[in-house]
Nucleic acid binder design. Sequence first.
DNA 1: GCACTAATGGTCCAATTCGGTAAAAAATTT
DNA 2: AAATTTTTTACCGAATTGGACCATTAGTGC
Lengths: 224, 224
Amino acid sequence: MSQETILEAVQPERKQQRRSIVTQQKLLDAAIEAFSENGFKGTSTRDIAERAGVHHPLITYHFKNKEKLWHAAADHIFGAFTHALANSLAENRQMDPKKRMSTMIRIYVEYARNHPALHKVMIQEASYPNPRLDWLIETHLKPLFETTFEMLEKLQKLGVAAPGNPAILFNMIRLSSGGLLTLGNELKGSSGIDIDDPETLDEISDMIVRLFLPGEMPPRSSTA
Amino acid sequence: MSQETILEAVQPERKQQRRSIVTQQKLLDAAIEAFSENGFKGTSTRDIAERAGVHHPLITYHFKNKEKLWHAAADHIFGAFTHALANSLAENRQMDPKKRMSTMIRIYVEYARNHPALHKVMIQEASYPNPRLDWLIETHLKPLFETTFEMLEKLQKLGVAAPGNPAILFNMIRLSSGGLLTLGNELKGSSGIDIDDPETLDEISDMIVRLFLPGEMPPRSSTA
DNA sequence: GCACTAATGGTCCAATTCGGTAAAAAATTT
DNA sequence: AAATTTTTTACCGAATTGGACCATTAGTGC
């Protein structure tokens, strides 16, 4: 979590003021929200400043320019998610693989509900080829996905996860959870699904586990 | 298919010229592409005209304004998809329910590959509440979804489709197919999935059928 | 071929918005 | 109180916005 930013590199002869941290935080949150809704091109720095309740030149002051603000915002939300995920996985280190994966799914569903911007930003940038997408893939997506691929493959060998290309399988899980919640505004009207109902979230998580991890864990052998 | 547009309402004392239809077509295609990439707000009419290779005042001439162009473009792509779907379903009228649903999935996967704008536009508009989303739901989504819900419920009763809320199930299918292909630009880099490979499309379709329609059709009884 | 209209091309518009800068004012830290 | 960080206010020039206007061209119906 080194989002004390950018400016730290210059030369902080004096320590950063608290209100400065607050406005940076507000700007990052507002930026993520705006970028996730309207994409990079479709978002103006003025819109972001307004959402943050802050004067727009502060963006230049704190983040230099729009591009750097986008990167900082992406780092911010991915960092927070990775952190939440790592925490939860550390807690469940001794659980069996199926339980661990189920937990990850549950966390992601919950996270996607509370921070839909995480998935939305990926969609926005994947919308057409651009350098930000490449950066996102290399910096955040690949590291995040790799461990999950491995976990899934292991589960497939154990007969727990459904067979087939694990990469495709993983992405289907990703879309059935995060992608589904991203459509929140539409689901109620088109399908009568209310993602604000906590029971709905459980229903989604349970269904994903049932669909994608249909097998049961084999009884633990003494040698392994 | 009444996308001969808008102007027909005025009073066509003479019949529409062929080149006019061509430019309208080009504008509709360009509009869908642009709107799907950058959303309504993020798209300029000039961008659309440029993509279409057409002078931008022609948008005003043919579609009155940006809003009406969006609606015409949405009608256009949803009409085309509904048409393709209906055609294929008509061909397979005598097939058993599981086969029919599998066919629908296959069609949607293929369609989403060749016309990613269909799904992208829905995502763009669902990104935040707005009147276009409401219109989209009422005009196109609900009619399109209703029949599928029913088919799915029937398949659940037959033990073919996975159990659980059919609306959620349906939307997971929708996202595992169309939503997945929408991420095309990202999937290669992040997961090594190449959606330009026809085999990948088959793999996706097959996996969806296996995951969501795991049961086999019961042998046909003589009375039903 | 002629008259009429639909369609296009090219130009212009006024308004707004864009990202970013500069310098004064205010708030904090030392 | 001095020094420095942060915020505020005002402003910039460039680009873009959706749309209007009219002369020209192409196609239609006779």
